[in-house]
Design a protein around this nucleic acid. Structure first.
Lengths: 215, 215
DNA sequence: CCCGGCATCAACCGATCGGCTGATGCCGGG
DNA sequence: CCCGGCATCAGCCGATCGGTTGATGCCGGG
């Protein structure tokens, strides 16, 4: 069973990373890289064409995010298992990827052997999570949904981060200022803060706000 | 002159990236990778031992940052030129690396040929900047220091990001609330915002606040 | 049916914020 | 000397914020 060759598709917008991954799997027995893609859209097309066992995917790429690609693969009932391999393990990313259908989630600093093992496990449909991600999921399961912002709340937070007053937010979203305040009260409670500035900071820390360049 | 072999030291905490870079330079003529390091401290030691022409260095690594390593190499008058290769191009990172002595600065999504050219240029002591970094430096030179926060201003901003009120900040910093407000007025002016929430957001966008995981 | 999550809304009021107006003093550079 | 940057401080006041108290309605799941 460990002798079965696992076929791979590598999805990352960084040439260095694609090369590094290809080189790693080329030098290890039991893996075959079928192809590479630099963005989510190409990944979905190539997966349909090449039908790999496992797709190694970064989450943050220009032109369609990894999460969207995973969701699309899931929608198409693609055979491939998606193993997320990324620099970040922020809350928003982790959960979205897993909810979209990813089988595993590893950070890019994982040693080679751990990566190989994770790919094999993913090919067999087993879930592999980096320790940090596993820990975070455990916490989330213990207090489900407690700190996940609703879509509307995220909208409000984004406008707050732009410096928009409650009154102006009400105008933008066609709601009353009282509703804006209510949303903010919920946001503060979920993020464990007491004012808008701290909410923005936690929003960035958790990946709700801002977007770093592709990882 | 283009036939001269450039020797390299690769510094990055991600095995994937180190492998990718080594593979890239192995498949190109005119380069030789002398060694690899996973953190800044090891980089400084290896540079002294191997004496490479160019050091390819990431800025964010555990156990001593890239900027510190660059500064130490500069202090030791190491022969090697440092080419920063990183995921980010935030203001704080860019300037710090260049001020510490880096010869060039490229983003990891640079195509192979651009990377090769940059390494050759760095070996000759020529400065190579990615377009985004170049553009930012030009803006900085046009209005030097205009939007750089003073140390005190950064202290105030960090406390604001924690949700501390002006009055409490005054207590923490042993100043009057009027002084806190004055600092904030300066901060808002420099960051081009009108309230604390937006200041925190821009603080994150510019790398003044927060720290993302290693790139 | 009940419950929870989400979205919506109102009023009151004390606290805080930020603009605006001023000011002083120190330091380094030209 | 002057100038700019930095740090410090004061007072006034309108606007905004956030806590608190309530409320309604929709939807889906048990």
């Amino acid at each position: 069973m460990a002798e079965r060759t696992v076929t791979l598709l590598i999805v990352d917008d960084h040439p260095v990373v694609r090369d590094g991954l290809r080189g790693m799997f080329a030098s290890a027995a039991g893996f075959r890289v079928l192809g590479e893609a630099a963005d989510g859209v190409a990944a979905v097309l190539l997966a349909a064409e090449l039908d790999p066992d496992v797709i190694l995917m970064d989450l943050r790429m220009p032109g369609g995010s990894g999460v969207d690609a995973i969701a699309e693969l899931t929608r198409r009932a693609a055979r491939a298992r998606v193993l997320v391999l990324t620099t970040y393990d922020t809350d928003a990313d982790t959960l979205q990827a897993i909810e979209a259908g990813a089988t595993g989630y590893l950070l890019k600093d994982a040693p080679r052997d751990e990566l190989f093992g994770a790919v094999r496990a993913a090919a067999e449909g087993r879930t592999v999570l980096s320790p940090a991600v596993a820990s975070r999921l455990v916490s989330r399961v213990r207090s489900p949904g407690n700190d996940a912002l609703s879509g509307r709340e995220r909208e409000v937070l984004r406008l707050v981060a732009k410096g928009t007053s409650n009154r102006a937010i009400a105008g933008v979203l066609f709601i009353s200022e009282a509703t804006v305040k209510t949303h903010l009260t919920h946001i503060y409670g979920k993020l464990g803060v007491s004012d808008r500035a701290a909410a923005v900071a936690v929003g960035y820390d958790r990946g709700i706000l801002g977007r770093a360049p592709a990882g």
